[in-house]
């Protein structure tokens, strides 16, 4: 796994995720990266990567909605100007 730092330099994060506990995809996977979003601008996140942690918070065992909420709040918070994703291909 490697850590990808996504700087919040756009209005949206710009990723679509699929997966979560009790589904066929047990951990959230990136299925879309939207042009012009912070993730696209970062250039290091790729479609197909699996997100293990967000800012050190593990997504293992979390339902889809819970994982999505953690990522959304990490992007919304003003405490940091970036998000650290621990991802694996």
């Amino acid at each position: 796994p490697n850590v990808v730092r996504v700087v919040k330099n756009a209005n949206t994060l710009g990723i679509a995720i699929e997966g979560g506990a009790n589904t066929r995809q047990p951990l959230p996977r990136i299925v879309t990266i939207q042009k012009g979003g912070s993730a696209h601008n970062c250039g290091q996140l790729k479609v197909g990567q699996i997100i293990l942690e967000v800012n050190g918070i593990s997504l293992r065992g979390r339902e889809h909605k819970d994982a999505a909420k953690i990522i959304a709040e990490a992007f919304k918070t003003k405490e940091k100007d970036h998000i650290d994703f621990l991802v694996v291909d």
């Binding site: 699929e18 589904t23 066929r24 995809q25 909605k65």
Partner: peptide, 16 residues
């Protein structure tokens, strides 16, 4: 393991 995974529901997709 594969059979158990296939019996699980597909996940929803969320745009963030």
């Amino acid at each position: 393991v594969r059979e158990r995974r296939l019996t699980l529901p597909p996940s929803e997709i969320t745009m963030l």
